[in-house]
Amino acid sequence: MEHTSPFERIIRGVLIAAVLLFFLFPILWIFLMSFQTNEQVLRIPPSLFFSPTTINYTSLVTGKLQTAAGSLDLAFMRNLGNSVLLSSVSVALALVLGVPAAYAFARFKFPLSEDIAFTLLSFRFAPPLLVLLPLSLYFQAIGLDDTYIGLIWVYQLIALPLILWIVRGYFEDISPDIEYAYRIAGHSWLQTFTRIAIPLARPGIAAAGLLAFIFCWNNFVFALILASADKQPVTVGALAFVTASGIQYGQIAAAIVLSVTPTLALALFAQRYLVEGLSLGAVKG
């Protein structure tokens, strides 16, 4: 086991390369597509060699798309802004609500506590479409239809259970004695929560927040049904490229690259937290 022959090492390298290629190729292909015109994308046979163009990106940024059929208005930058707004406000709200709730579930055993916690988690199990129809009717009735507030509210279905369960596991891993020690030293319950529990659970909170952000960002169906064009995030906005005059592959690719970049950057930046937070908190909790 400790000794590996050169042959074994080569085999291992080849296998790893194959796996990497399999998973990374679509991303690479999209990236390449985003620098090609629709004609280049659709030529047969496809080729890795082409003269790159930034037309897709400029049209996304300027919001004007020139097609054979004429000029088309694009709301992509607005969509991107919506995504940022919806995801970050949703996660922030979920943290404000979820972290204290997670602490309560971790520290205090009250009647039905397990059931309530599980019910919250079970929101993640139900197919979103199941709730969407009634929800859209209710929202129309109470005027939350097509509002940011309404969307952020619904996004809690995504973010809150995640944060609750991951952070709860983290709080449970903190020895109660540590908190007792701080309280007995004369600090109030709230001080103990903010100065001991939260700092110690910080990796878990960061991981949960990040994960919730990514899930919110990637959500498609809630916004599709509940929001009109000017409130839609990028995931829904990308549908605009399916036009009467054909599918704008180049723009779709560029839009995907632009919309994936922030979450990817975030994930890479916080990779250590993510792995640590998810493996420790979630599994043990």
């Binding site: 020895s175 020690a181 309280r183 007995i184 030293a185």
Partner: peptide, 20 residues
């Protein structure tokens, strides 16, 4: 009385130091 008002000093078996 809540613990913070009792004015006792305590040491735990597992030390319970604040890791941060």
């Amino acid at each position: 009385a809540p613990p913070e008002t009792r004015g006792v000093g305590i040491a735990f078996q597992n030390f319970a130091l604040f890791p941060h």
